Amino acid sequence: DNLVIALHSYEPSHDGDLGFEKGEQLRILEQSGEWWKAQSLTTGQEGFIPFNFVAKAN
């Protein structure tokens, strides 16, 4: 599964970004460059996240 966990909170700064809290679990939908499309397992919302704010969940 493409599950990751947030290492830091992220406040969206552009339309289409997905905000999240530290410790939140996300599902990665697309990996492309430094911005990945993800879905929050907490809110169900989708958007782009900075890849270096998350780590693979085990």
Rank of each mutant, 00 (worst) to 15 (best):
D1N: 11
N2M: 12
N2S: 11
N2I: 12
N2Q: 10
N2G: 06
N2A: 02
N2P: 03
L3E: 04
L3N: 10
L3A: 02
L3D: 05
L3R: 10
V4Y: 13
V4A: 15
V4L: 13
V4P: 03
V4T: 07
V4N: 03
I5Q: 06
I5V: 15
I5A: 05
I5N: 09
I5M: 08
A6S: 07
A6W: 00
A6P: 01
A6F: 01
A6N: 00
L7N: 04
L7K: 09
L7S: 09
L7R: 07
L7G: 05
L7W: 03
H8L: 08
H8M: 09
H8D: 14
H8S: 12
S9A: 09
S9H: 08
S9W: 00
S9G: 11
Y10R: 08
Y10N: 04
Y10F: 08
Y10I: 04
E11G: 06
E11R: 11
P12E: 02
P12R: 03
P12Y: 05
P12W: 02
S13L: 14
S13D: 13
S13P: 07
S13E: 12
H14Q: 12
H14T: 10
H14L: 08
H14S: 13
H14M: 08
H14P: 02
H14G: 13
D15Y: 12
D15R: 13
D15M: 09
D15T: 11
G16Y: 09
G16D: 12
D17G: 13
D17P: 02
D17R: 14
D17K: 15
D17N: 10
D17A: 14
D17I: 06
D17V: 11
L18H: 03
L18P: 02
L18I: 10
L18A: 04
L18G: 03
L18Y: 03
G19T: 07
G19R: 11
G19S: 12
G19A: 13
G19L: 04
F20H: 01
F20E: 04
F20L: 06
F20K: 03
F20Q: 02
F20Y: 02
E21V: 14
E21F: 05
E21I: 05
E21Q: 14
E21A: 13
K22E: 12
K22S: 07
K22Y: 06
G23E: 02
G23Q: 01
G23F: 04
G23M: 02
G23P: 00
G23T: 01
E24R: 01
E24N: 04
E24A: 07
E24D: 12
Q25Y: 13
Q25K: 15
Q25R: 14
Q25S: 13
Q25L: 14
Q25A: 10
L26R: 03
L26C: 00
L26D: 05
L26H: 03
L26Y: 00
L26Q: 04
L26N: 02
R27G: 01
R27T: 09
R27F: 06
R27C: 09
R27P: 01
R27Y: 10
R27K: 11
I28G: 02
I28N: 04
I28W: 00
I28K: 01
I28S: 04
I28C: 03
I28A: 04
L29I: 07
L29K: 07
E30H: 08
E30R: 08
E30L: 04
E30A: 11
E30T: 08
E30G: 09
E30D: 12
Q31V: 07
Q31K: 14
S32G: 12
S32D: 12
S32Y: 12
S32A: 13
S32T: 15
G33E: 05
G33K: 05
G33V: 01
E34S: 13
E34V: 12
W35P: 06
W35V: 12
W35E: 07
W35R: 15
W36S: 06
W36E: 01
W36G: 08
W36F: 10
W36P: 08
K37Q: 06
K37V: 09
K37N: 05
K37Y: 10
A38T: 00
A38E: 00
A38G: 05
A38F: 02
Q39D: 00
Q39S: 08
Q39H: 07
Q39Y: 05
Q39N: 01
Q39L: 07
Q39R: 14
S40A: 06
S40P: 02
S40M: 01
S40W: 00
S40E: 02
L41I: 13
L41Y: 03
L41E: 11
L41M: 09
L41H: 02
T42D: 10
T42L: 11
T42P: 03
T42I: 13
T42G: 08
T42R: 13
T42H: 12
T43P: 01
T43A: 04
T43G: 03
T43F: 00
G44C: 06
G44E: 09
G44P: 00
G44K: 13
G44D: 08
G44Y: 05
G44V: 02
Q45C: 11
Q45I: 03
Q45K: 12
Q45E: 14
Q45T: 11
E46L: 10
E46S: 14
E46P: 02
E46W: 05
E46T: 15
G47H: 02
G47A: 02
G47W: 01
G47I: 00
G47Y: 01
G47P: 03
G47M: 01
G47E: 01
F48E: 08
F48G: 04
F48Y: 14
F48Q: 08
I49P: 02
I49Q: 02
P50V: 00
P50I: 01
P50A: 00
P50E: 00
F51L: 09
F51I: 15
F51W: 11
N52K: 14
N52Y: 07
N52V: 03
N52T: 09
N52W: 08
F53N: 05
F53D: 04
F53I: 10
V54Y: 02
V54W: 02
V54G: 04
V54C: 07
V54M: 03
V54S: 02
A55L: 06
A55C: 11
K56V: 11
K56M: 11
K56S: 14
K56Y: 11
A57F: 06
A57R: 12
A57T: 14
A57H: 13
